[in-house]
């Protein structure tokens, strides 16, 4: 996969600018739904950058997992907690945000200095063509244990998410009169747990 060099650079600049702009939108916009859709834009741009880095399998996995699953999950969460609430303003909000911006800018300057000052031991051997075969070989030889642990982790996350997110059902004492109705569940949804007593 060798595009022309200039075309690679143009693609990199376009994708990078799109990614940074969408990420700023995710952080700075007020409407959270816009943020969620812009997050999908960030994921798509990063997938394009992966293709520029000769990683076709991971680019496809990025689109499938992030855009297809994580972004949709976040949209579901936004719609489930769709409460139009205006947050009570805090004091010194600009001071907090300014201090955070200064710290993040300083961190970026530090990282950029480190990146530009380090002599990277670049390896310019030929890029392998078929990354899927190589990744699969890694998965089933020297990364077999992490691979299996990842599957167990996904199972645990699935069970944990279901247990955390479902509503609690309190089984009621089974009434002998209603026992004949075999199709009704002997459960009822519990009342919502306590609302905040003192919203500060």
């Amino acid at each position: 996969m060798n595009l022309a060099v200039d075309l690679q650079l143009i693609c990199f600049v376009v994708l990078g600018v799109a990614m940074i702009a969408a990420a700023l939108g995710v952080v700075l916009l007020d409407r959270i739904v816009y943020s969620a859709f812009l997050l999908g834009g960030v994921f798509l741009s990063i997938s394009g950058l992966y293709i520029l880095l000769n990683a076709d399998f991971v680019a496809a996995a990025q689109i499938l997992v992030y855009v297809g699953a994580v972004n949709v999950l976040i949209l579901f969460a936004i719609m489930l907690v769709n409460k139009q609430e205006d947050f009570t303003p805090l004091g010194n909000r600009w001071l907090r945000q300014g201090a955070t911006a200064v710290v993040c800018g300083g961190l970026f300057i530090l990282l950029a200095t480190m990146v530009l000052a380090t002599p990277w031991a670049l390896d310019t051997t030929v890029v392998i063509e078929n990354t899927v075969v190589q990744i699969g070989r890694h998965f089933f030889s020297d990364y077999l244990l992490p691979f299996e642990l990842a599957s167990v982790l996904l199972l645990m996350a699935m069970v944990g998410a279901i247990i955390l997110a479902r509503r609690d059902f309190v089984p009621e004492g089974i009434d002998p009169l209603t026992r004949q109705e075999a199709l009704t569940l002997p459960e009822r949804p519990r009342e919502l747990a306590g609302t905040p007593s003192d919203p500060r």
């Binding site: 996995a61 699953a69 999950l73 976040i74 969460a77 982790l153 996350a157 997110a165």
Partner: peptide, 19 residues
């Protein structure tokens, strides 16, 4: 790929906690 896996698990559990 491992990081993507863990991120998916983290997103699911985190959103469940938020709910």
């Amino acid at each position: 790929v491992f990081v993507i896996t863990v991120a998916a698990a983290e997103a699911a559990v985190g959103l469940a906690i938020i709910l």
